[in-house]
């Protein structure tokens, strides 16, 4: 685990011409970048392409990284912007929602013993606005602080807190509605 100070020293060496050292930064942050991209585009091959593209962009703009924020926060912002712009360009893609449901369905099969409620919750998650969905998913990864999520989404912490609370409330409301409808049909 390298410290912020060591990371800055590493960046200095990369900027001085030791490009091969960039692989250390890629290795350290690739899972985070890939996960953020998946949460946005909901498709694994596209997320991989976006994460790679974001790392290449970060390398190109490394000189402009001003060290006021952490490298990770700066990188996540690039990943977020790359993914959002990719999603906008390909917003009529047909596979996204299906992939998301399958992903959660598989997880539900594995961990929650085929509990139907989890499939309903996955559907409720898909019905959220993109911003609420992303905020709540990043929050539950337990890998990013609220400050990091706020900076990534260019919103303040309170807005993120509201989004996370509201997303969970809406998912619970949706679950209640579905279960109520199901009970009526029995």
């Amino acid at each position: 685990m390298i410290t912020v100070h060591e990371e800055n020293a590493l960046i200095d060496r990369i900027l001085a011409g030791e490009e091969a050292l960039y692989a250390q930064l890629v290795d350290k942050y690739k899972s985070f970048a890939y996960t953020i991209a998946i949460k946005i585009v909901e498709n694994r091959p596209e997320a991989e392409e976006i994460a790679q593209d974001a790392f290449v962009k970060a390398f190109h703009y490394l000189k402009k990284f001003n060290r006021e924020a952490k490298f990770s926060t700066w990188l996540y912002r690039i990943v977020f912007n790359t993914a959002i712009s990719y999603k906008r360009k390909n917003k009529y893609s047909l596979h996204s929602i299906e992939n998301e449901i399958i992903e959660y369905h598989e997880r539900a099969d594995h961990q929650m013993e085929k509990d139907d409620k989890h499939i309903y919750i996955a559907k409720a998650l898909n019905n959220l606005s993109d911003a609420d969905k992303l905020a709540v998913q990043l929050y539950y990864l337990n890998e990013f602080s609220l400050e990091e999520i706020a900076e990534m989404l260019t919103q303040n912490i309170n807005t993120i807190k509201v989004r996370v609370h509201r997303a969970r409330q809406r998912m619970a409301d949706e679950l209640r509605k579905i279960l109520h409808e199901e009970a009526l049909t029995l």
Partner: peptide, 9 residues
């Protein structure tokens, strides 16, 4: 459900 959300590789 959301706690099942993990980092992907």
């Amino acid at each position: 459900f959301l706690q099942g959300n993990t980092l992907s590789s």
